[in-house]
Design a protein around this nucleic acid. Sequence first.
DNA 1: TCGGGGTTGAGAACCGTTATCAATCCCAAA
DNA 2: TTTGGGATTGATAACGGTTCTCAACCCCGA
Lengths: 155, 155
Amino acid sequence: MTAPTHEQEPASGTDIDDEVLGLLRRADQRYTTGRRKLVAALQEGDGPLTINQILDVDDTLAQSSVYRNLMILEQVGAVVRIVTRDEFARYELAERLTEHHHHLICTSCGDVADFALDDRVEATLDRALHKAADTAGFAVDGHRLDLLGTCGSCD
Amino acid sequence: MTAPTHEQEPASGTDIDDEVLGLLRRADQRYTTGRRKLVAALQEGDGPLTINQILDVDDTLAQSSVYRNLMILEQVGAVVRIVTRDEFARYELAERLTEHHHHLICTSCGDVADFALDDRVEATLDRALHKAADTAGFAVDGHRLDLLGTCGSCD
DNA sequence: TCGGGGTTGAGAACCGTTATCAATCCCAAA
DNA sequence: TTTGGGATTGATAACGGTTCTCAACCCCGA
Ligand SMILES: [Mn+2]
Ligand SMILES: [Mn+2]
Ligand SMILES: [Zn+2]
Ligand SMILES: [Zn+2]
């Protein structure tokens, strides 16, 4: 064990499937083959994926089913939908299944990659955010932090 | 003067118009009445506004012109387009014309409000972000920090 | 005053996403 | 194992926010 984080241990390895199964069951949904392939595809990317990126990873998936199943997985709490700057939504596994992290958004090619901050910085940030939220009468659920700039492949 | 910030003094009051005028001139664009009304509408909101919110504020504006002029004002660097969670894009004056700030996004009603962090926290954050970006070979342009939760009007 | 390029705005087109629905799958009961 | 029926699938149509089109208009300069 390392320094304590503000959240419980995320599922790692293939028991992500178990966790997703539970989330779906709780909503009377089945963990079908297509949904398993979807979760597997999301697990591969090192950042949130667009629909087309998902279809590139697994071309046995049907576009309309991907859209529908991502919606269901989001409702269930297994997937998060992310909109950055371009017109394509991106999807990633919820932090409950992975770990709290943030995004490097390349304003040139549009690609999005994950990165994490030091726990100490996160703690400082959370404190400041809660303080700011309190004075605004805002109940905090979480935060979203993106870095905008140019990725390595774009010089 | 208070503690030094990491950016130059933002334009305040009605000389925002002067600044916008300069930005448009530099791109061989005119600062027409419609564009002035658009900037005025954005100045009124206490957060980024959707197209419909803009049309509500000033019903003399034509939708298609609002879309086109927001696009031009964004290219020129006077306006920033923001996409949160719902299907409506929002627009606000660029930080060059206002001040660096962040957003409270209500996941219930979708409304977005501005808030700012302490300069000290911003500095700590910037330092940590640059460090993380360096190790990822990412050139930082800026950051975006949103607070997700429930606003005061939504309990 | 006049000419002409920039701007406007109503409407059409675009395109990512969502809804439709018949065919199929899959669990559960018999 | 067989079978009935509700859930899921996937090709397709519909939807809606945004962008494009183009004729009318405006506005600056000669
Ligand atoms: Mn964080
Ligand atoms: Mn900041
Ligand atoms: Zn890039
Ligand atoms: Zn609200």
